[in-house]
């Protein structure tokens, strides 16, 4: 019985995923990028470079385990203690894999709420910080009013972090949703979680938002954002000239700038080999639990 249930739910989830992709008119971007990555790896292998350690992939799923690269704040013992504390917290609740652009539901204990807990649904517009200081910001529009809540990832008052839709967007930060039309950051609180079939890569949602007319909170035209469709409508000639003047095309060739922003591979290998086993075990056990769980989530009536 349970097997049948699981199968049906799998099928439902897969159809949902396919449907959503169809609705959103998704291009083959994720597949393309995958192909690109694979071919890159092959080229690397051919050129005789060292094979990249597979556990290095953790840096995308658990970015907060890497310390701040500023050498003024580095200390190996503090980083170790911090990682131990993070693993302790991860043993208590499941902190799932999510990215900027994913839609999350966070349940947190709130002393001012009637039921002492508060659930908020929104799109993750920013994820930053390292170690126990890691944080993420959720945005939603509630009653025509934009709401953003910043959560600490390792806050012990968080009861549950649920990923309702796992996907990436075209940009690393989605602050431009604040100046976009409200429908781009409106998500219903009774959204059903969409489950991807196992083994699929995280899809990239290529949706491009429409900005409201000026005034804006930031000069979006200078930030080389891919997720905005109508930015040229709102620009004057002056803005285009200044955008050209402020461009920094040399930065992508600045190797030292990139080096200072990242943790070297040797140190990353040490860090991941220290935490990988525990993280992997946690992942396996949490998968088991999620399989046991029935997928039928009752819809909560709000308001």
């Amino acid at each position: 019985m349970s097997l049948a249930l699981r199968k049906t739910t799998d099928i439902v989830a897969a159809t949902k995923w396919i449907l959503r992709r169809g609705c959103l008119n998704l291009s083959t971007l994720p597949e393309k990028s995958e192909v690109l990555e694979q071919s890159g790896n092959e080229v690397k292998r051919r050129s005789g470079r060292k094979p990249v350690n597979p556990i290095l992939k953790c840096r995308h799923v658990y970015p907060e385990f890497l310390p701040d690269p500023n050498p003024k704040w580095r200390n190996s013992l503090r980083e170790k203690l911090e990682r131990m504390d993070m693993l302790k917290r991860r043993n208590q609740i499941e902190i799932p894999e999510f990215y900027v652009g994913s839609i999350l539901a966070v349940t947190i204990s709130d002393p001012h709420a009637q039921s002492k807990t508060n659930r908020f649904v929104g799109i993750c517009i920013e994820r930053k910080g390292s170690g126990l200081r890691a944080e993420f910001t959720l945005r939603n529009v509630v009653d025509h009013q934009g709401v953003e809540i910043r959560y600490d990832l390792y806050d012990p008052t968080i009861h549950q972090i649920q990923v309702l839709r796992l996907e990436k967007r075209l940009d690393d930060k989605l602050f431009y949703l604040r100046d976009a039309l409200p429908e781009y950051s409106t998500f219903p609180f009774d959204m059903d979680p969409e489950i991807l079939p196992e083994g699929t890569p995280v899809p990239i949602n290529p949706v491009q938002v429409k900005l409201k007319p000026r005034p804006w909170l930031e000069r979006w035209e200078r930030q080389e954002l891919k997720g905005i469709s109508n930015i040229e409508e709102h620009l004057k000639e002056k803005d285009r000239v200044r955008r050209e003047l402020r461009k920094k095309p040399w930065e992508k060739y600045d190797l030292m700038l990139q080096y200072r922003k990242t943790i070297p591979i040797e140190e990353q290998n040490d860090i991941w080999s220290e935490v990988y086993n525990q993280l992997h075990q946690l992942q396996v056990s949490q998968k088991k639990i999620s399989r046991k769980r029935t997928y039928s989530t009752p819809k909560t009536q709000l308001g």
Partner: peptide, 13 residues
């Protein structure tokens, strides 16, 4: 202080 290996903080009425 709340130790990190303790369970999640719940607020009672």
């Amino acid at each position: 202080i709340h130790p990190f290996d303790d369970s999640t903080i719940t607020l009672d009425d």
